[in-house]
């Protein structure tokens, strides 16, 4: 091989590396701008455009139990749902603090608590917002393996390799109305009837985060509602140790009452699957939540508590 050819090929190799790196940074910057300008709920939150009023936090059950457009028509103050699929309570804690720092202080915080069992399966989806929050950045680096951090440093585009990008691009003006619109299949109902009993789950880190969130809100005078959304009745019947689990959640939250709607409806057509309401179910549930005073800061606790708060004599 001629020396000239060799240098030409080395030059091309270096040019390729330069184009890859420059293009990676430029495309990532473009995607970041697209995400941050979108109606994605977390883009709104990190832009500081959330309305205050009622803040809802939780996992996919939070997304599908609380249909924001329906609630906004029934509740006085504005409603903002910052729930996300697979979201752990630890991540909800980060989102809560970031929300309060950037947006008008909420008048009420509603937490759908089943995220206490979550492992943050979709944590990587939050990479696009890491540049917006030191707290989120720290949480991501603590929680994810070191090789992920290396990949993020090497390729800025890797931060957009997740559902959040598509959710942002598809969000339009707002994604607050996102909810499952389909109905559970008869086969899945039958499968829920047949299935073996299943354990409820509470992860220590999430329980501790829940306690800190409640204390944080109480210190600021923000009322907190701990809620358990509805389950498909056949599935709810298979949840082992459910009452003990609710006790543990309440204890983690410093004794705050739990508004338990896990058995709120027997209507299977209100469900998308075993653990999620659908659009119809969320629309049916919303007036009941309002009637029960869930969104009224002056109501101390649920009138017809399935799980009553502990009395002084019952406390250890």
């Amino acid at each position: 091989m001629a020396v000239g050819d060799l240098w030409r090929r080395i030059g091309w190799g270096l040019a390729l590396v330069a184009v890859v790196v420059a293009g990676d940074r430029a495309l990532a910057a473009g995607l970041h701008a697209a995400v941050m300008q979108s109606g994605n709920r977390f883009a709104v939150l990190y832009r500081g455009d959330a309305p205050g009023g009622v803040l809802i936090l939780g996992n996919s059950r939070g997304v599908n139990t609380f249909h924001q457009p329906t609630l906004e028509g029934l509740v006085g103050p504005p409603v903002f749902n910052a729930s996300y699929n697979g979201m752990s309570t630890e991540l909800s804690e980060v989102v809560l603090y970031d929300y309060v720092e950037r947006n008008p202080e909420p008048e009420l915080v509603v937490i759908e608590v089943t995220g206490v069992g979550a492992d943050d399966d979709q944590l990587r989806d939050f990479f696009p917002f890491a540049t917006e929050s030191e707290r989120l950045r720290a949480y991501l680096s603590e929680t994810l393996p070191a090789r992920v951090a290396t990949a993020r440093r090497l390729f800025a585009l890797y931060n957009y390799n997740g559902e959040m990008l598509y959710r942002s691009l598809a969000a339009g003006g707002s994604d607050q109305g996102t909810i499952n619109r389909y109905k559970i299949s008869p086969a899945l109902i039958a499968a829920a009837d047949r299935q073996a009993p299943t354990q409820t789950r509470l992860r220590y880190g999430n329980a501790a985060a829940l306690g800190r969130m409640v204390s944080f809100c109480q210190a600021r005078g923000i009322p907190v509602r701990l809620v358990i959304g509805p389950y498909l009745p056949a599935f709810r019947a298979k949840l082992e140790g459910y009452d003990e689990w609710v006790d543990a959640v309440r204890e983690a939250a410093g004794g705050a009452p739990v508004w338990d709607y896990s058995e709120a409806t027997d209507d299977v057509t209100a469900f998308a699957d075993r653990v999620h309401l659908n659009y119809r179910g969320a629309r049916l549930l919303a007036p009941r939540l309002v009637e029960d005073g869930l969104f009224d800061p002056d109501v101390a606790g649920p009138a017809s508590l399935a799980i009553p708060p502990p009395t002084a004599s019952a406390s250890p």
Binding site: V20, G23, D24, L27, F155, L157, Y158, Y160, N161
Partner: peptide, 8 residues
């Protein structure tokens, strides 16, 4: 490479 990083 960008496609692999972004969608992989």
């Amino acid at each position: 490479l960008w496609v692999i990083v972004l969608f992989g």
